[in-house]
Computed example of a mutant assay.
Amino acid sequence: MRIDRVSVAGLLLGLAAIMLGQVLEGGRLSSLYQPAAFVIVMGGTMGATMLQTRFPVFLRGMKMGIWAFVAPSDVPDDMIRKLVAWAHLTRREGILALEKQIGGEPDPFFRKGVQLLVDGADATRLREVMEVEITTYENTLRQAARVWDSAAGYAPTIGIMGAVLGLIHVMENLGDPARLGAGIATAFVATIYGVGSANLIFLPIGRKLQTHVTQQISVRDIFVDGLVGIANGDNPRIIESRLLGYVAQVPG
Rank of each mutant, 00 (worst) to 15 (best):
V75H: 14
W86S: 06
E131G: 01
L117D: 10
W86G: 06
L243A: 01
A248T: 12
L29G: 07
V6R: 14
E240K: 10
D4G: 01
I158A: 08
R2N: 13
V39W: 14
I66C: 04
D176A: 10
I239M: 05
R127W: 00
A190F: 07
V189H: 01
G226N: 03
D119R: 08
V247P: 10
K100N: 02
V213L: 02
G194I: 00
G26K: 03
D122F: 06
R242K: 13
P177N: 04
L227C: 08
F223T: 06
F109R: 01
S197A: 15
L11D: 00
R28N: 14
L15E: 05
L20K: 02
S150G: 13
G10V: 15
T90V: 13
A144M: 04
N232M: 13
G27A: 11
R2V: 10
E133G: 01
M19N: 05
Y154P: 04
K63A: 11
K112W: 00
E172M: 13
V147P: 11
P35C: 03
A121Q: 07
F109Q: 00
V118S: 09
L12W: 08
A97N: 05
E133W: 04
I160E: 04
A185W: 11
Q143L: 05
F188L: 15
G47L: 13
G153R: 08
R207M: 08
D122S: 09
P76E: 03
G26A: 07
R125T: 15
H169W: 10
D176R: 11
D77S: 15
M62D: 07
G159A: 05
A248G: 07
I95G: 11
V224D: 13
L98V: 04
G194Q: 05
Y33H: 08
M1W: 05
S7H: 05
S150H: 07
A16T: 12
I95A: 12
E128P: 09
F109S: 01
I80V: 08
G120P: 09
V147R: 01
I205T: 14
L203H: 12
Q52N: 14
T124D: 15
G14D: 04
S73T: 11
G94E: 11
G233W: 14
Q143V: 04
F38D: 13
L243E: 02
S150K: 12
K100D: 12
M50R: 06
Q143Y: 04
L203V: 00
G43R: 11
V250I: 13
T49A: 15
